[in-house]
Design a protein around this nucleic acid. Sequence first.
DNA 1: CTGAAAGCGCTAACAA
DNA 2: TTGTTAGCGCTTTCAG
Lengths: 337, 337
Amino acid sequence: MSTLADVAREAGVSKATASRAMMRPDMVAASTLERVRAAAERLGFQPNRAARALTTGRTGMLGLIVPTLANPFFSPLVLGAQRAAEETDNHLLIGVSEYDAARESALAGRLCEQADGLVMVAPVGSDASLRAQASHRPLVLVDRRVGRLPAVVLDTSAGTAALVQHLCAFGHREIAYVSGPAGSWADAERRTAATEQAEADGGRLHILGPLDPTFDAGVAAARQLPPSVTGVVAYNSYLALGLLHGLTAAGIHVPRDLSLAAADDLNALGATDPPVTALDVPVEEAGALAVARLLEVHAGTRRTVTTRLPTHVLPRGSTAPPPGTAARTPHGAGHGA
Amino acid sequence: MSTLADVAREAGVSKATASRAMMRPDMVAASTLERVRAAAERLGFQPNRAARALTTGRTGMLGLIVPTLANPFFSPLVLGAQRAAEETDNHLLIGVSEYDAARESALAGRLCEQADGLVMVAPVGSDASLRAQASHRPLVLVDRRVGRLPAVVLDTSAGTAALVQHLCAFGHREIAYVSGPAGSWADAERRTAATEQAEADGGRLHILGPLDPTFDAGVAAARQLPPSVTGVVAYNSYLALGLLHGLTAAGIHVPRDLSLAAADDLNALGATDPPVTALDVPVEEAGALAVARLLEVHAGTRRTVTTRLPTHVLPRGSTAPPPGTAARTPHGAGHGA
DNA sequence: CTGAAAGCGCTAACAA
DNA sequence: TTGTTAGCGCTTTCAG
């Protein structure tokens, strides 16, 4: 591997000039620049990032901690982050916490050693531990807010409210929110939003759970729905899928007897029978944005801000007017946040 | 952030000794070791990896390139790799190629700059480009073989053969293999294995495809099956899921009218009705093993070897004797590779 | 606009 | 067993 010194020699300039040609082309005479570039090209020069990191203090690496990759929610997130990193000539160090707070914080510590900053997606750690982490290195949260720490939030709570509104517009009044996991920040947000929206629309919200956000839990939940309920909003797609299965198995037809919607969107929801009304969530964008924010924080360009990314109701076949209602189109459907 | 010099001063020793205390504890007097460790602890010392990399030539980073994260096959792979990296005090740089050869090779180039080696999972690039890559830096392939390059292969071809055998043992003779994507290495392997096994068992193998490995393609394929066929092995779970759906919709009952199996295993296959016979594939293990191999290659401990990880038939409800056969248990079922 | 020189924090001979 | 010394490859003052 050729070094900067090689390039400098080949181009007949000093190391300093060669370095400038790469870092600050505008500080170098055009002809010199040309020569250095040619030399670098000829030698296939690739700067040694470790050496660069040592002098500049920037490693060019960004840590990304996700709870899991098995949940398809996180794939586009990582992809978006990876692209954004790539575009800015950064690299992505990945860590999978498996929803374990201890593992998460250990990973954060390890990654920080080597990265310029950290993106933590839906972290499970305590506010205090995240604050501590942030005091150490630039930290951007995704789908979690802790005080004034910079965060990118997918606004599924507004989306959940929009879903409730969507149901109310159809004429539903007795609505159930099927909760996600106990202690989940996202679930708490969605639940609150659903409650407030139901109230605002003159409906009543029944809450089931907390539940594991799984297919099986959804199947079980289908048997627990209060009989008065005509519309259901599930914390996530897995629960919705389970609910759909459970309801169908119990002879309850969706959407004729009951309307069903999910507060996120797995592709699978579009392929069920009927397809399930859900939320369009810009996950990949969130990943990219988190990286962009992190870079800004690192550069000191940006104060601590939370960006909420809007989500939108994706009306599909699973929501309709409640039984015994003349069919009509809901007003206000299709617009979230 | 405190440096090694700080620790040395605090412990009253030279930098060299402090460094040795961390790197080669056995070369340092017990009492000195103790003092250095205490000092490091007190100062919260964390070695600067960039500096270390500069002197040792090892960055402590391993690149991992996957085609996508959306396919749940790759999640456990990444998890396994990440764990193995963690255990050996390495970090994982992730790249997502999106099945694009150009992007893949660009990523490989970028990651190499900074990593001690590369794991490429099911790469789409040409043999030549992979060879070139390998000549550059340690490279371990997963689920792809190129000449004598080190590789970890999930032995789904033996598994596919075992699946065919499983069907034959039930009495099936007319069997279809529903192919995966054109040009796929894994598909070619599985197809060949299926063909040979069918022949060995006195059956006949019909080949459908190549097909996109998607649910929809599976649905479509259900209509293309030759009428004589009583058993089907699909390239992967998505195709199998689609086939199941398409067959059921067409009034063909699985497994009464037709047996169905998949040459890999998504969790979803266990939850369908009937659950689909599939292959137990040690994906996480493959990820971990690839990292271990990479480290060995890097250390020069190991020559170029391909490790095949066995897969096993997971018999489920979707396979049974062909129509018009007295039910009986197949012999030899349940054992792959 | 360019060059000389001084490190960044660490490890690894080589001596002692 | 420990200390001294010399870099690893790069960026960046500071002069010229």
